[in-house]
Design a binder for these strands. Structure first.
Length: 560
RNA sequence: UGCCCAGUAGCCAAGUGGUAAGGCAACGGUCUCUGAAUCCGUCAUUCGUAGGUUCGAUCCCUACCUGGGCAGCCA
């Protein structure tokens, strides 16, 4: 059992703590600001977790803000999926749902102020020309020929931009900062562009739209954000963030803090590629259980608790790191161990006939849903009879050393039932084992006085006639590349794991699973954790493997 | 090549001037009617490298190396 421990320290938490202690802030207000232009993935989950749990930890609040300042890329359909995903992760923004689009008038007013201050100007350069004037990483930029227009002219032109007098791309409003700055973000960045486009929220009210750097800091300020947490790639934007707020002299000046995003080995998180994988049919959709999207991992059966646990365990730093998948798997098993009913399911069935068991007889055996150490109770009856299925892997005609499952002449315990002994092996014309004939020892039934007779191995099974035919889907990582996002040259499609999806169409599950519900999670004993998938029908349930159990035998084999 | 950031074990990660927490993985053992879980143990003479400051440096300074970010009218 794990005891509650104090939340781990991290540098952001320390900053917040100090700000509270010093009186800089009385409370904490954070925000999660997704752009509604796609589906959230596990990388976003860390940001969600960080912002919400940080606020929570100090009795503050976290806003959900749609960062929707680009009408060309965003769509209302994503707003709903984002909200659903955040909720699923277990976080609640209450009434604090905001949209940058609702601040368009504020952004505009601030821009006018900037112009009046002489800190912004309308520039007539084309996009290509702006690029030329900007200079390079090593050479300073040159001032735009329009940089020194009068305040009056700028105001007039900017109003003209707003009123739709100019074509898309013909002019921009730019901040007047420093064309020679070694930080390219400060070389008179554009703050407004002309886009005669319909906005999913603001409709056709505007034909000029603000840029991220400009809109984001003002949004934060308007909402009274105390700590504006973002990922590392915005580090070079922080001077700009501060410049806008300082220059505009806004009363609230949040502190931008950057952290490194969550990256998992063998997992692709690039938005463009994820979209490509969906549209090209490489995966079945945004919610394909192999996808790292929140929708995908939800369908895969991952629990929100385990995702939060992972975020907490890997911590918050500025070092760019690739987390091993085993870490995630461990979080999953740790969570599921205390939640999932233990049941029996045979993935790859092999028929077993008990030659000395009465034909037509079915016994109902008691089967607890949890092992003792989990501390949870409840049980069901499992039918036992003359014909059973066991796992193909649990029988070997010519086993290696230390194999203690079923083998010719050998004994094994059927979990929660009897000890059986293999008497005969039946093969087809190709020499494959198709049936095993065994005798059972009637004195050894679990729960009876004879249960204490020991044999080396215990295997799982289902009774043939009452078992439920099912499809089971096994998943592995989608890519064979440890860092698929880092692929420099070459096509990521060349590194698809051929075993990322294995469908087992003829699995057999114990009777009790016939009445399970979509979304219910179970441990199929000795195999792993599974969730009932939405593709299930009345006749044929479909189960997704969430994560396998650790396999000490496989490890042993590897060493040999 | 300019600026910014990071570099503590196989993977994460604390420590930030007084002599290297913790987790994952691995390994050994315990237990077991799940080869799971549990439980117990082992696992950095050393913190990217080289200098310097100091009685003392993972921590401060300098240089270098490695990795990442930045030249959208994307976010």
């Amino acid at each position: 059992m794990q005891t509650e421990t104090a939340p781990p320290v991290n540098f952001i938490r320390q900053i917040v703590e100090e700000d509270l202690k010093s009186g800089k802030h009385q409370t904490v207000v954070t925000r999660f600001p997704p752009e509604p232009n796609g589906y959230l993935h596990i990388g976003h989950a860390k940001s969600i977790w960080l912002n919400f749990s940080l606020a929570q930890a100090f009795g503050g609040v976290c806003h959900l803000r749609m960062d929707d300042t680009n009408p060309l890329k965003e769509d209302a359909q994503y707003v709903e999926s984002i909200k659903r995903d955040v909720q699923w992760l277990g976080f609640d923004w209450g009434t604090r749902e905001f949209h940058a689009a609702d601040y368009f008038q504020d952004f505009f007013d601030c821009a006018v102020k900037l112009i009046k201050l002489g800190r912004a100007y309308v520039c007539d350069l084309s996009a290509d020309e702006v690029r030329e004037y900007r200079g390079t990483l090593t050479e300073p930029g040159r001032p735009s020929p329009w940089r020194d227009r009068s305040v009056e002219e700028n105001l007039d032109l900017f109003l003209g931009m707003r009123d739709g007098q100019f074509e898309d791309g013909s002019r921009t409003l730019r901040a007047k900062i420093d064309m020679a700055s070694p930080n390219i973000n400060l070389r008179d960045p554009a703050i407004y562009r002309i886009r005669k486009a319909h906005h999913h929220r603001a409709g056709d009210a505007w034909c000029i739209y603000p840029m991220y750097d400009y809109a984001h800091c003002i949004s934060d300020s308007l909402e009274g954000i105390t700590h504006s947490i973002c990922t590392l790639e915005f580090e070079n934007h922080r001077p700009l963030y501060d410049w806008f707020l300082d220059t505009l002299q806004l009363p609230v000046h949040p502190q931008q803090i950057e952290f490194s995003k969550l990256k998992l080995q063998y997992t692709m998180l690039g938005k463009r590629k994820l979209r490509e994988m969906v549209t090209s049919g490489l995966v079945s959709g945004w919610d394909d259980p192999r996808m790292p999207t929140i929708a995908g991992i939800r369908r895969r059966g991952y629990t929100p608790e385990s995702i939060r646990d992972l975020c907490e365990k890997v911590g918050v730093t500025k070092s760019e790191v690739w987390t091993e998948l085993s870490y995630l798997a461990e979080c999953l098993r740790h969570d599921l161990n205390t939640k999932a009913y233990r049941v029996m399911g045979v993935l790859r069935p092999l028929k077993v006939v008990l030659t000395n068991y009465p034909e037509g007889q079915i016994e109902e055996l008691d089967a607890a849903y949890f092992p003792e150490d989990v501390g949870l109770h409840g049980s069901r009856k499992v039918p036992f009879g003359r014909e059973l299925y066991i796992e193909q892997d649990d029988f070997m005609e010519d086993p290696p050393k230390k194999y203690f499952r079923l083998q010719p002449g050998g004994e094994v315990r059927l979990r929660r039932a009897y000890i059986i002994k293999c008497q005969e092996v039946i093969k087809d014309s190709q020499g494959r084992v198709v049936e095993v004939r065994c005798s059972y020892d009637p004195d050894t039934r679990s729960g009876s006085p004879g249960e204490h007779r020991k044999v080396k191995g215990t295997i799982h099974w289902v009774e043939a006639s009452t078992s439920v035919p099912a499809e089971v889907r096994l998943f592995e990582e989608l890519f064979t590349l440890e860092q698929p996002d880092n692929l420099k040259d070459g096509d990521y499609r060349d590194f698809i794991n051929p075993n990322s999806l294995v469908v087992l169409p003829d699995s057999r599950l114990e009777r009790s699973l016939a009445h399970s519900k979509v979304g219910e999670r179970f441990q199929f004993e000795r195999q792993g954790y599974f969730i009932k998938d939405q593709d299930s029908t009345v006749d044929k349930p479909v189960f997704n493997r969430i994560v396998p159990l650790k396999d000490g035998w496989a490890k042993l084999l590897q060493k040999q």
